[in-house]
Simulated assay, not measured.
Amino acid sequence: MTFFVFLLACAAAATTGVMFKPGAWYESLNKPSFTPPNWAFPVAWTIIYLLLAWAGYRLSLIPGSQTVLALWAAQIALNTLWTPVFFGAHQVLAALMILLVLWLVVAAMVVLALQLDVVTGLILFPYLAWLCVAAALNFSILMKNRT
């Protein structure tokens, strides 16, 4: 049952991608050469959200995991916030600031999760790696589209 609570939280975060689609504005941006193809984003996020739910579930079973679970809650809130700020409000700098805080929260979550359970910590690494790509992409878009 607990797995489905984490999965539901991830699904709620994912709905922002349905509500705030990239659209013409995103297509018109000058993007870096390392920009993943459009089909890669939903594939990557589906995998990441499933891994996040699994990691949250595993953490919920470990005594003393309250701090990591609080970080899990913080990251899903920040994750949910980024899409409407970037794609909805077109606030690239504000989205980058959110992403930097998100990266710090996820990095701390990975470190603490590794201390509690190595497998759970490793489950979170793809998320952190994708956030590195996302931050580089967000930063590059900011730099290439200054007006």
Rank of each mutant, 00 (worst) to 15 (best):
I141C: 08
A11I: 15
V133M: 14
I62N: 07
L71T: 03
A113P: 04
W45L: 02
A44T: 05
M109W: 06
P36F: 01
A108N: 08
A77E: 11
A134D: 13
R146S: 14
N38A: 13
W72Q: 02
A95I: 07
R58Y: 00
S65Y: 00
L81F: 09
K31F: 00
Q66S: 12
L99R: 07
L81P: 02
A24L: 12
S60D: 11
L122D: 00
C132K: 13
Y127N: 11
W130D: 08
E27Q: 12
T16R: 05
A40Q: 05
A107F: 11
M143C: 15
L137Y: 07
V119Q: 15
A95G: 14
F87E: 01
F3V: 05
W103I: 12
V111S: 06
A14L: 10
L116Q: 11
V111K: 13
V119R: 15
L69H: 01
G17W: 10
N145P: 06
V18L: 15
S60W: 09
D117F: 06
T16M: 12
S140K: 11
A24H: 09
F4M: 09
Y26V: 03
K31I: 01
T67I: 10
V110I: 03
T67V: 10
W54E: 05
I48E: 01
L142C: 15
A77T: 14
A44S: 09
N30H: 12
L69V: 02
M143W: 14
Y57F: 13
M1Q: 07
A136L: 13
I76Q: 06
C10A: 09
S28L: 04
A135P: 09
V85M: 04
L100E: 11
A113Q: 05
P84G: 07
P32Y: 07
L114E: 03
L29G: 04
G56A: 03
H90E: 12
G17F: 09
A134W: 08
S33N: 10
L71R: 02
V101W: 03
F139D: 02
L61R: 09
K31C: 00
W39T: 05
N145F: 08
A24K: 14
K31Y: 00
I98D: 11
P84A: 01
L104V: 15
I48Y: 01
T80Y: 10
V111I: 13
F125H: 11
A11D: 09
V118A: 15
T120F: 03
I48R: 01
L7T: 07
A70N: 13
Q66R: 15
A70H: 14
L142I: 10
Q66Y: 08
S65D: 00
L137P: 10
P84K: 06
L116W: 08
V119N: 11
L50W: 07
N30Q: 14
A9V: 09
Y26I: 05
N79C: 10
L104A: 14
N38M: 12
F41N: 04
I48W: 02
P84M: 03
L124P: 02
I76K: 04
A73Y: 00
T46C: 06
A14S: 15
G17S: 10
L102S: 03
L51P: 08
F6D: 00
L124E: 06
P32C: 04
A108P: 06
F125W: 14
L78W: 01
V92D: 08
V85Y: 02
L142Q: 13
V68S: 12
M1S: 13
P22K: 03
